[in-house]
Simulated scan of single mutants.
Amino acid sequence: MYLKNLHLLQFRNYQDQWVEFGAPKTILVGNNAQGKSNLLEAVELLSTLKSHRVTRDRDLVKEGAEWGRIVATLERQTGEIDLSLTLRRNGRRTVTRGSEALHRQIDFLGTINTVQFSSLDLDLVRGGPEHRRSWLDTLVIQLEPFYAHILQQYHQILRQRNALLKKIREQGTVNDTSISSVSRSELALWDAQLVTAGVRVMRRRSRALQRLTPISYYWHQAISGSTEKLEIKYLPNVPMENDDLELLKQAFLEKIQQRTIPEQHQGTTLVGPHRDEVEFTINQTPAKQYGSQGQQRTLVLSLKLAELKLIEEVIGEPPLLLLDDVLAELDLTRQHQLLETIQARFQTLITTTHLSAFDPVWLNASQILYVEAGHLSVHAW
């Protein structure tokens, strides 16, 4: 797939900016806070309908405006597709694909596939479990867009169940024997729904990691010179001996029953995939606690290269690669590995504050744009 052009209207610090991508590699160069990452964020939104930087649409709309819009033309093997995402400061966003306004945003997912690599991705290793769950869920959505609906359904059920548990706690009925029959019956209904939705989430997370792990291992061996061994383990909150649907449901329900009293005391759900963990180890040592910065960067780079390969295998086309100011953080060996891998195969958008990190041959084959205060111009290096 190839992103042919992008039109930003009242998005972030862009008033009305059109950019046509004339080469497989586009380098956006400029000082900090000029809008380089904002452009990559626009592409990310077209891909995932989410930003890894903010959660509210009002933060994406240019100051003083009521709405913002991202318009793009994408070329895929099936032909050209026109895309549009309208964000509103105080209202619902709208999406269109071709000439069709889509009633469900979920139907927009899977049109553009991207892999993003930014300095924030080091939180995959250093941060809490929520960072790793979010990363894994984003990957699964790229592979199977319907997963976004499954995940949304699970979190809706989780919110409803938590509301009931909070109500039970506030009523002071924290012992199972003192819960009213109405509350007990209602909780049982939410338990069943949580189990059904939660198992769907767990199975898809597990399958995606099973496919990603050997590819990550290959890249990690290549980048580290076979001196380090990477292991990735999915640690579900519910025991997962195998992929059998009924056994998983039974294990899930049994764990809920075991945690009944603590859940009612705390007024929140303690069992389910919202408490899953993904563990990275290097030479059998947890990367989070003991990995050096170099090891952590190698780990994240290996994951990103594996994502590119896996998405390409599943969807049949190479995804776009978004590199947000990461080359400066990689040493020459890791830079070389990354640049050699992507070559002309993956359309790549790169942000940087300077061009000195790039090989001149590589620069000659790239489109270079200068970014200043939300304006793009051709940059002679």
Rank of each mutant, 00 (worst) to 15 (best):
Arg207Ile: 11
Tyr234Gly: 15
Ala380Cys: 08
Tyr217Asp: 14
Thr73Asn: 05
Ala197Asp: 02
Gln193Thr: 10
Leu376Met: 06
Gly35Gln: 01
Ser180Trp: 03
Thr111Gly: 05
Asp121Trp: 14
Phe21Asn: 02
Arg169Ala: 14
Leu363Asn: 04
Asn31Trp: 00
Leu209Trp: 05
Asp276Thr: 15
Gln258Phe: 02
Asp107Gly: 08
Gly225Tyr: 08
Thr285Arg: 14
Thr348Asp: 04
Arg297Glu: 11
Ile168Gln: 03
Thr298Ile: 06
Val29Lys: 03
Pro262Arg: 06
Met240Val: 08
Gly22Val: 08
Ala365Asn: 07
Gln193Ile: 06
Glu100Pro: 03
Tyr14Lys: 09
Leu299Gln: 02
Gln142Glu: 13
Ile350Pro: 01
Gly316Tyr: 09
Leu40Ile: 04
Lys288Thr: 07
Arg205Val: 15
Ser356His: 13
Gln156Cys: 04
Ile81Ala: 02
Arg169Tyr: 05
Asp276Pro: 11
Ser185Gln: 15
Gln284Ser: 14
Ala72Asn: 04
Arg89Met: 03
Gln250Lys: 12
Lys233Cys: 14
Ala65Lys: 14
Leu235Met: 12
Gln257Gly: 09
Glu130Val: 07
Arg53Gly: 01
Ile368His: 01
Lys255Pro: 09
Lys309Cys: 13
Glu144Asp: 13
Gln284Cys: 11
Arg12Gly: 03
Lys249Gly: 15
Glu100His: 12
Phe11Trp: 09
Gln257Leu: 12
Pro273Ala: 13
Glu277Ser: 09
Lys304Phe: 04
Glu41Val: 10
Arg93Phe: 04
His265Ser: 06
Arg297Asn: 10
Thr341Arg: 08
Glu313Val: 01
Leu330Pro: 02
Asn31Val: 06
Asn5Leu: 06
Gln77Thr: 05
His354Thr: 13
Thr260Phe: 10
Ile179Ser: 00
Gly267Pro: 03
Glu340Arg: 15
Leu303His: 07
Gly64Tyr: 01
Arg92Met: 07
Thr55Glu: 08
Arg97Val: 10
Tyr370Pro: 01
Arg12Ile: 09
Ala33His: 05
Asn237Tyr: 03
Leu9Val: 12
Leu247Tyr: 09
Thr96Pro: 00
Ser377Asn: 09
Leu270Thr: 08
Arg133Glu: 02
Asp121Gln: 08
Ser37Trp: 08
Thr138Arg: 12
Val201Ser: 00
Lys62Ile: 13
